[in-house]
Amino acid sequence: MRFSPALAASSLLVLLASCVGPPSRTPAPARALPAPPPAPQASPAPPPPPALAWEDRALTPGSWSYRQDAGGSAALFGSAGQSLFTLRCDPASRRITALRAGAGQGAMVIRTSYGAVSWPATLDAGAQPQVIATRAATDSALDQMAYSRGKIGVEVQGLSPLIVPAWAEVARVVEDCRG
């Protein structure tokens, strides 16, 4: 038998191949568990309800009354004998005074279906504090109050707003003052 280098090389390859062990089995990847659901997040607080426009707010409980005395006439809005808002005519000066019960400050804002006006006002801090605004009887805002569609808003800083019905008593006082 003859020694052939090609045969020796192939034999060596066969020998080397037989020295290799069986292929290692890599373990199958562990079955992945589904990811836990995300922790529930606290839902944000609901937004506050939108502020109602003044004309959409409920009327302030109470009713208007009209009275006439030696000093002129007055329209009073309130309940149980307590006036929350008063329009008083001084016929001698032809001026109308608006009085809002309570210790507020700043201007008195009157809202009607025609728009809003701001009247300068002062605080009378007497035994029964009230905010006072005085206007000429010819002020067009008084007509707007008398003919407002359904409601009149009265706002003074520091006091809760009043939403009063637009009744005839307002027009009576204005007419009384205009003569």
Rank of each mutant, 00 (worst) to 15 (best):
S160L: 08
L162I: 02
E175A: 14
S43R: 11
G71T: 13
C89Y: 04
Q144E: 14
A141D: 14
R95E: 12
K151A: 14
G81Q: 13
M145S: 02
M145E: 06
A133V: 03
Q105D: 12
P49T: 11
R100K: 15
S18M: 14
A35Y: 00
A168N: 06
T97E: 13
S79Q: 15
P27W: 03
E169V: 07
M108C: 02
Y114L: 10
F3H: 12
G153Y: 03
R88C: 01
A42H: 05
W54I: 07
T134L: 01
R25K: 02
C89G: 07
V164Q: 14
V174P: 00
A45S: 03
P27C: 05
P40A: 15
Q105P: 06
P36F: 07
A70Q: 12
G62M: 01
P46T: 06
E155Y: 07
D176T: 09
A9Y: 08
P48G: 00
A121H: 02
P61Y: 08
V14R: 13
T138N: 09
V156Y: 03
S113W: 05
A166S: 14
A116P: 03
P120S: 08
S18P: 00
S73V: 12
S24T: 15
E155G: 04
L84Y: 02
P44S: 13
A35F: 02
T134R: 05
A101I: 02
S160E: 12
R88P: 00
Y114G: 11
V109Q: 15
L33A: 13
G102P: 00
S83A: 15
V174T: 05
E175K: 12
P47E: 12
R88T: 12
P47T: 06
A80Y: 09
Y147W: 09
E155K: 01
A127H: 04
P5F: 11
C19Q: 09
S73L: 01
S10P: 00
T26C: 07
A127R: 08
A168W: 05
M145T: 04
A141V: 11
A42R: 13
V156E: 05
S113Q: 10
F3P: 04
P40N: 10
R31G: 07
R178L: 00
I96G: 01
A70W: 02
C177P: 05
R135E: 13
S113E: 06
G62A: 00
G21D: 14
A53H: 09
A32I: 08
G153Q: 03
A146P: 00
T134C: 04
P48T: 06
V156D: 09
M108Y: 02
L76Q: 14
S79A: 15
C177M: 14
S113P: 01
S79R: 15
A141N: 08
A171Y: 08
S118H: 08
A42K: 04
L52P: 05
S160M: 08
A121M: 04
P37W: 10
A51D: 13
A92Y: 08
R149N: 13
A30W: 00
W64E: 06
G115Y: 10
A58Q: 11
G81F: 15
I163V: 15
R135W: 06
R100G: 07
S4N: 15
R94W: 02
W167M: 11
L13F: 13
A116T: 12
P50V: 06
R25N: 02
A30V: 08
